[in-house]
């Protein structure tokens, strides 16, 4: 198996075959996670650095855990305490890290395109851990992995993604990833959060959550940033929850088999009710475990080029 890519920036650049390779690799990585001794020598001597310009607990610790299990050394730049707060530019900060012979940089940034910007200018590999409203490819891969694990595959499945689609990198990357693998995606939200130009994704847009839930195999609730209300994008949490909240009554329309996903962190009682989040249909915690496996697969593929046997 050969993996020639240096970076993982966007699902859009990947073929369906490449996505399958990542997901297949993640299957053996997940097996490692069940072992009593969760440590591989595969990437011993490799250095992975986290450069997170947005606060993140789960994504950063997921990447760190993944890199450590594979035997790599990790470092993390806490932006608030670094020279970034002294006005150092993104490019200079990343160049400094590159000069320390880092092999792989994991970047999260509020500006769309920031990881690609660095990847084009630095010799080391870059993984996009979420950039602005643009892309969150590892989230999409772990979501699809979680669905595939339940269903065996996603081809022909109907997945409804509901919420603040306009501002969501998770929705964009998931829609791209799922449609590449042959799934049907419907994006749902109020018109202010689901403008018509989102049809660039080539998927159906709908304002009617209840109608779309019928026949859905999976439903993913997006995190609602509560400050959007002050910007006038929706009138109240009450009305949002009434129209687009994932409630038990609503889930009844989809049926007992319908999977419930959420990228986290959740606003319980807003976009998802607790009884749904904690129901047997929910794979929200499994998503977190799978996130480590998928990120292990990516770090392994990018750093070894697929050349060495990962899971000895």
């Amino acid at each position: 198996m050969n993996w020639p890519r240096k970076d993982l920036l966007d699902i859009a650049a990947l073929s369906a075959e490449e996505i399958e390779i990542i997901l297949d690799t993640a299957v053996s990585m997940k097996e490692v996670l069940t072992r009593p001794v969760k440590k591989l020598p595969t990437l011993r001597g490799k250095a992975v650095a986290m450069l997170f310009y947005e606060t993140s607990t789960r994504t950063r610790s997921s990447f760190e855990t993944a890199a450590k299990i594979l035997g790599a050394d990790t470092s993390s730049l806490a932006v608030a305490q670094s020279s970034v707060s002294k006005g150092e530019s993104l490019l200079d900060t990343a160049k400094t890290l590159a000069a320390m012979n880092i092999d792989l940089l994991v970047v999260r940034h509020a500006a769309s395109g920031a990881p690609q910007f660095l990847a084009e200018r630095l010799p080391l590999g870059v993984i996009n851990a979420g950039d602005g409203q643009h892309a969150h490819p590892t989230q999409a891969l772990l979501d699809v992995y979680s669905m595939r694990e339940k269903w065996g595959g996603v081809t022909g499945r109907k997945i409804v993604i509901v919420g603040d689609v306009l501002h969501s990198r998770v929705a964009r990357s998931n829609a791209l990833c799922l449609t590449k693998l042959g799934a049907e995606v419907v994006l749902v939200g109020p018109p202010t959060l689901l403008p018509p130009e989102m049809d660039y994704l080539g998927v159906r847009l709908s304002y009617d959550f209840d109608r779309e839930l019928a026949g859905a195999d999976g439903v993913m609730a997006l995190r609602l940033q509560l400050e959007r209300q002050q910007s006038g994008l929706f009138p109240s949490l009450r009305e949002y929850n009434r129209l687009y909240g994932l409630t038990r009554e609503r889930m009844a329309r989809a049926g007992k088999e319908c999977l419930v996903l959420h990228p986290g962190p959740m606003n319980r009682g807003v976009e998802i009710m607790s009884d749904v989040a904690d129901s047997p249909q929910s794979v929200i915690e499994t998503q977190v475990t799978n996130g480590v496996a998928v990120r292990m697969a990516l770090i392994y593929l990018l750093l070894s080029g697929g050349a060495v046997d990962a899971v000895a």
């Binding site: 769309s112 950039d131 409203q133 643009h134 306009l166 990198r169 964009r172 403008p195 660039y200």
Partner: peptide, 13 residues
């Protein structure tokens, strides 16, 4: 400019 291109790039339009 707001449109499909801005949506695809994830840039505010």
């Amino acid at each position: 400019r707001r449109g499909r291109a801005s949506a695809a790039l994830g840039l505010a339009g």
